[in-house]
Nucleic acid binder design. Structure first.
Lengths: 169, 169
DNA sequence: AACAAGAGGTTCGAATTTGAACAACCAGGT
DNA sequence: ACCTGGTTGTTCAAATTCGAACCTCTTGTT
């Protein structure tokens, strides 16, 4: 396999830009959120999903699907949120194994208090830095990138058959 | 402060796309690299910087600047690389406090072996998923995003005075 | 009804990350 | 020569992450 297609300058710029933006934005938001609201980004995302759901309750598994952590990671974070009284665990009525994460009143208040600052930070770090057309390109292009790496067989169709494989052409 | 500018649908799509792409790509490459070469992404990046430098040696501090980990994180990772014999520590001639990380022959070989697979994975996950124009937009836009969050006073000028601040209003 | 296959969550240990504290050292002015 | 302030790299404890092992329970099949 002599022929590796290395990255040319433009490709390298895109890759490096992606990497740097990724880690800087992530770190920045993590800090902002922890300082202003005492939440990790993961915890904030959990609260958002719960707040968006009817009755503020979501099954653990469903929570894990939209989320970017492993099963055990979710267990841990929900545990932390439970300690602080922002979330309660309740057993699922339709499946004895199931566990529902339920948003408490205090959890909802905490989220309400944290949201404005977080949105402002997201704007300042990413959204408001992009031009209108860049915004759309980023949404479309990165959306495609994320979707292609989505694990198969969950949610609404991947729609893209061209999977990613480690076959060396 | 009643007026929070929430994210509209397009902005939300961009933000979510960015988040998902970020975490999926990161996780995917991490696994690919660990499976194929037994390296973490952080370790791979360290080897790359060393290989690019004259004599394959870089000062710890300089290494940390281009890199996306904390000082202590770097100490740890270089320690791991040293254990495997891919890197050596040498004291800096011009500054007694300083430590040089030096690429060993074995380290260079390991990198050479790992690079093609990694580049292929980067292509498959990101680069080849983007159209030409998308590639350029991503490079320019995300480059700007990353640069704005770059800590001040290192490297070649940020050129952008409009810093990011947590001032309300 | 009994069974195999698998889903749902938690628990465990190992690896990694982070910021703060630390010790040693350079640089500039006095 | 002597402080003062800032740098350099490491060490430390605490928090977090991951995958694998593990039980309990559901589901589809026979």
């Amino acid at each position: 396999m002599a022929g590796t297609r290395w990255l040319d300058e433009r490709e390298m710029a895109a890759w490096h830009g992606f990497l740097e933006a990724t880690s800087r934005v992530s770190r920045h938001l993590e800090q902002q959120l922890k300082e202003d609201a005492g939440l990790s980004h993961a915890q904030y995302e959990i609260l958002v999903r719960l707040a968006d759901a009817p009755d503020g309750e979501v099954r653990m598994t469903d929570l894990a699907h939209g989320l970017f952590t492993s099963k055990s990671g979710l267990t841990y974070q929900v545990g932390q949120l439970e300690k602080r009284g922002l979330v309660e665990r309740r057993s699922c009525p339709t499946d004895v194994r199931g566990v529902l994460a339920v948003l408490t009143t205090e959890g909802r208040d905490t989220l309400r208090a944290a949201a404005p600052g977080h949105v402002a930070a997201v704007r300042a770090a990413l959204i408001d830095v992009l031009e209108q057309d860049e915004l759309d390109v980023v949404a479309r292009a990165l959306g495609r990138v994320g979707a292609r790496l989505r694990p198969p067989g969950q949610g609404i169709g991947n729609s893209d058959s061209g999977g990613i494989s480690t076959s060396s052409s």
